[in-house]
Simulated scan of single mutants.
Amino acid sequence: RCLNPIKAATCHPDDEAGLLAFKSGITRDPSGILSSWKKGTACCSWNGITCLTGDRVTALTVSGQSEVAGSFLSGTISSSLAKLQHLDGIYLMNLKNITGPFPQFLFRLPQLKFVYIENNRLSGPLPVNIGSLSQIEAFSLEGNRFTGPIPTSISNLTKLSQLNLGGNLLTGTIPSGIANLKLMSFLNLGGNRLSGTIPDIFKSMPELRSLVLSRNGFSGSLPPSIASLAPILRFLEVGRNKLSGKIPDYLSRFKALDTLDLSRNQFSGVVPKSFANLTKIFNLDLSHNLLTDPFPA
């Protein structure tokens, strides 16, 4: 939408060049998602474009139709998107056949706050200087093919409230510096190849409401500091790992908990009787462990 459609009769030249370069990098657009992107017309009339500062583009949204077979875009993400210097949000989701490495042009967008580049085929390592994206508030690379470790510099993203790196091929351990992300409310590292123990960092993350670490290779026990999240945590998913020991009694204090998934680990002993206190639980999965009777009535 345009704040001032009359003033924004045409794209700013830099924005138009960047967007048309992105379009030229797309080799296949079977659903015509980008068909409205034409030189000499108002940016805000193009599908997926938001202009809120005169003729400058502030948000770019290109999303595939996941329910329509064969409708996905193919191609690469042009680095010329760096020309969109007023961009504060980029949403490239469910395009499926978009390939290439981590988009380095993100580092050249000074106003960028929201990044959702999900369910594509981007690959390769995450850049070691990812922490220089210090203005980012929400960052999701879910459902790509990124490899290698989570860079330690991620601890510099202190404005983050949402971090989603789920569904990639990341390896190594969780950097302990993630404890610096004190505004975090949503953390998803599930569906990777991470290993080691889960660091005992959660006292430093008082806003955390959703923690997803499932489908990795974590071992050891659940860290004690998870207990500090009892007042607000709603989703705790650590299924399909190699966690062991007894199910901690402190989980019974999570009165806001909606989903608890401890499945397919090596937890032993009995289910705590105090789980009866989890009155808001909707999804409880304790399957495929080494638990013994009696199950609390």
Rank of each mutant, 00 (worst) to 15 (best):
V68N: 05
A69N: 12
G70Q: 10
G70V: 09
G70H: 04
G70K: 09
S71M: 08
S71F: 03
F72K: 09
F72I: 03
F72V: 05
L73H: 04
L73W: 01
S74M: 09
G75M: 04
G75N: 08
G75A: 08
T76G: 07
T76C: 00
I77T: 06
I77C: 11
S79A: 15
S80L: 06
S80F: 08
A82V: 12
A82H: 09
K83Y: 10
K83I: 02
L84F: 00
L84Y: 01
L84H: 02
Q85R: 15
Q85C: 03
Q85M: 08
H86V: 01
L87G: 01
L87F: 01
D88V: 04
D88I: 04
G89W: 04
G89Q: 13
I90G: 03
I90Y: 08
I90K: 07
Y91W: 12
Y91A: 05
Y91H: 15
L92D: 07
M93N: 14
M93G: 08
N94C: 06
L95T: 05
L95H: 04
L95F: 08
L95R: 00
K96Y: 12
K96G: 02
N97Y: 13
N97H: 14
I98P: 01
I98R: 05
I98S: 04
I98C: 01
I98D: 01
T99K: 12
G100R: 03
G100D: 08
G100F: 07
P101R: 06
P101C: 07
P103Y: 07
Q104C: 01
Q104P: 02
Q104Y: 11
Q104H: 14
Q104T: 15
L106H: 00
F107C: 04
F107I: 00
R108G: 04
R108W: 06
R108S: 15
L109H: 04
P110A: 11
Q111L: 13
Q111V: 01
L112Y: 06
L112K: 02
K113H: 12
K113C: 02
F114T: 13
F114Q: 12
F114W: 13
V115C: 11
V115E: 05
V115R: 06
Y116T: 05
E118G: 03
E118C: 12
N120D: 13
N120V: 07
R121L: 11
L122H: 06
L122I: 09
S123V: 01
S123Q: 15
G124L: 09
P125H: 09
L126G: 07
P127C: 11
P127V: 10
V128N: 13
N129A: 13
I130T: 03
